[in-house]
Design a protein around this nucleic acid. Sequence first.
DNA 1: ATTAACTGTGTCCCAGGGACACTGTTTCTT
DNA 2: AAGAAACAGTGTCCCTGGGACACAGTTAAT
Lengths: 234, 234
Amino acid sequence: MSEEANEAVRLLWGPPARPSRGPKPALSLGRIAAAGVAIADAEGLGAVSMQKVAGLLDFTKMSLYRYVPGKAELVALMVEAAVGEPPPAVDGLGWREQLTACSDQLARMLAEHPWLLDATVGPRVMGPKELGWLERVVAALDGHGLTGPERMDTAVLLAGHVRGIAEQARAARPDGSPEAKLLAVLGPLVHQHADRFPALAAAMATQDGRDQALDFGLERILDGLEALITRRAG
Amino acid sequence: MSEEANEAVRLLWGPPARPSRGPKPALSLGRIAAAGVAIADAEGLGAVSMQKVAGLLDFTKMSLYRYVPGKAELVALMVEAAVGEPPPAVDGLGWREQLTACSDQLARMLAEHPWLLDATVGPRVMGPKELGWLERVVAALDGHGLTGPERMDTAVLLAGHVRGIAEQARAARPDGSPEAKLLAVLGPLVHQHADRFPALAAAMATQDGRDQALDFGLERILDGLEALITRRAG
DNA sequence: ATTAACTGTGTCCCAGGGACACTGTTTCTT
DNA sequence: AAGAAACAGTGTCCCTGGGACACAGTTAAT
């Protein structure tokens, strides 16, 4: 397995390859990843197969294996291609504003590429861009009395929250996708069994139109963080 | 698609079926789900196939389709089977203690059945037990001045955090699984590119042995929540 | 000019999900 | 009691997807 991991590391971190003798490659990792992203954006990660990616590029399935060892690595490349740069660090902005900016941008990213939720489950090798996000968040927390592990944990905490929100946002999305009815199924279900889920039924009864889930959780986390930082400083 | 959703709802929520005429079923949804859980516990969700589940029960693959419409529904049943009951509500316990208990138990559950992380991505129909957890958390927040959506958002926030922790715990697990080396790969990677990830390198340098990620995030969330509750009350 | 390395392709294999027709069994109805 | 209807489990078939492998064509170094 360390073979495969090293293979993925080479693709994500290594130099853009250095061909020496034979014919020039007609494809590139970038084009392959972009094709995969296009399919995933349009039809979801499940629709991404070697065949379809190759077909979109007018190549044969097996030619992809000249560039990518397997599907896992292809997905890793797709993730790295879809993950944009984190918002730049602006001088004079406090940690709270920076973390808010990062979270918002991350949420936008997950809204644009919902399949990232599926592609980033389970243990995997992270690419430079992905690590860049982590760096950005950890850096924003520098110099406020938090230990190293605490800064890492905060990053995980924020990412987990945005993930959770994005996941339920996807389920509730009222577009033509097959999942549209899921909330329409769950709501009546709770009401139908209101005796078993009284608190839930009550909580779901009051609906303000706006979707403040992201901001609400974010504010709670940041409030809690602020309390800790103040306590450490004082 | 609402067909499939309704089918899943019938399996998860409907009565335990009502045979009328033909031969008695030799199998049951419970046994099938248990077999699937056993395989997933041992080899991961990816190893769960109709064949293996049927084989474990000494039946043919196709006989499973007499009970379950497809694999998605099988996984839903597995989830519902693996999800235990939430910790009971104890009178005299504050909301903070109750939420802590729920989070801890959820974390234990995910540690026992890591494949739940894979099985609960994406939109899906939730079963009674799963909804019971949500009910439990929302109920613990009753009567503290939070709106319905706010209580729901808090539940999502907590679940997202525990999920995130469980995910990184799985990646770091030092057992014989193939993912063991992932952290061993990521660490050196950060150090190797310490110039691009200075904050990250610094944060990863200081390692206290204990794994406090779960509690740290939980305390932050609860602190932030407490601040809101106090503000609302005052 | 020759050779070695490399690219893209066609063919093959296997595993997994699912459709379908078929046989056997049980219970309801007449 | 006897037929009929509904249901259980099976074997066979098809499709899709991932991947191995040998092959032919292409290019650069020697």
